[in-house]
């Protein structure tokens, strides 16, 4: 089969994007119109329909900002501010990114270690797995402030507490994926190792580990997105002064709806970037392991 050309892949995505933007504009009009009518009546202004529509899209604190308001805010706060400024989205994104990456790294390593333990020790399989699953049913929003307060009490502040929340969210998909991956070799592949009288270590490194790599990357894609959520959640309730999460909270506090949406967009772009980077690394590794080009 011929691989899709770039245009073939972009056109469907673009179509949906245009649809979303169109719906957004319509929604912005209807959400902001009552307040605008109110304003006009009090000021005693009568405006034509087009003027009125224009005004619903230009309020400073709209209920639902129009897409172009958000875009211009994102643009302004990304490219026109010094990256060290407290108003720069790049600055806030960087703060969140650093704790995301630290937390993701620790989470991935923890997940792999847990999976190796579970696959090799029956006792761990029985004792650990239920706890791991239970750990993910705890509402992270309730746990996050406690983690930060408890660690703060023993003088651990700054990056690490936030990263730990990312770790907490990201180790799970990696552990589950790696357990599956390390157990993915077929019986015939294991029998082959047995006929060679291969040691457990040899079977692990020459069969289980390479077989688990695709599973690792799939779960890492989930884990990196979860890490970002963890980092943002870690910034929300803790009075953090920087990061996408604190930006969201501050904007909500002052009803800066445009800023909220801008921070959301920044967070989404960050998530997309991170998932894409993991995806690209996965592709490169797959190629080097003889993967059949898709």
């Amino acid at each position: 089969m011929k691989p899709d050309s770039l245009a073939q892949r972009i056109i469907p995505v673009l179509t949906i994007l245009i649809a979303i933007v169109a719906i957004w504009y319509v929604a912005a009009y209807f959400m902001n119109a009552p307040f605008q009518r109110d304003l006009d009546r009090r000021a005693g202004v009568t405006s034509s329909t087009m003027e009125f529509i224009g005004k619903t899209m230009a309020q400073p604190k709209p209920i639902l900002p129009a897409p172009h308001q958000v875009v211009s805010n994102v643009f302004e706060n990304t490219f026109l501010r010094s990256v060290t400024s407290n108003r720069s989205l790049v600055y806030h994104a960087w703060v969140t990114l650093s704790s995301t990456v630290l937390g993701f790294t620790m989470g991935t390593l923890t997940g792999i270690l847990i999976a190796v333990g579970i696959v090799h020790l029956k006792a761990l399989d029985r004792s650990l797995m239920p706890w791991i699953i239970a750990s993910q049913t705890v509402p992270i929003l309730a746990v996050a402030p406690m983690v930060i307060v408890v660690l703060g009490a023993i003088n651990i502040t700054g990056l690490l507490p936030k990263a730990l929340i990312s770790t907490y969210l990201s180790f799970f998909p990696v552990a589950v994926g790696m357990v599956k991956g390390l157990r993915s070799p077929e019986i015939i592949q294991l029998d082959l190792m047995r006929t060679y009288y291969a040691s457990g270590t040899q079977t692990f490194w020459k069969l289980r580990v390479p077989a688990s790599i695709p599973f690792l990357f799939t779960s890492m894609k989930v884990a990196i997105a979860a890490s970002l959520v963890g980092a943002i959640v870690g910034e929300l309730p803790t009075g953090a002064v920087a990061g996408i999460g604190s930006k969201l909270l501050a904007a909500a506090y002052y009803s800066q709806t445009i800023d909220i949406w801008a921070a959301l967009i920044a967070g989404s772009v960050l998530a997309a970037l991170l998932v894409t980077i993991v995806g690209i690394i996965a592709r490169i590794v797959d190629r080097s392991m003889g993967g059949r080009p898709a």
Binding site: E186, I188, Q189, D191, L192, R194, T195, Y196, Y197, K206, L207, P210, A211, I213, M289, G290
Partner: peptide, 19 residues
């Protein structure tokens, strides 16, 4: 088996796809 005195060919090739 421990002195590796036989080679075994399975029904399926069982080649490791990453090698």
């Amino acid at each position: 088996r421990k002195s590796r005195s036989y080679g075994y060919v399975f029904q399926a090739p069982a080649l490791y796809p990453w090698r």
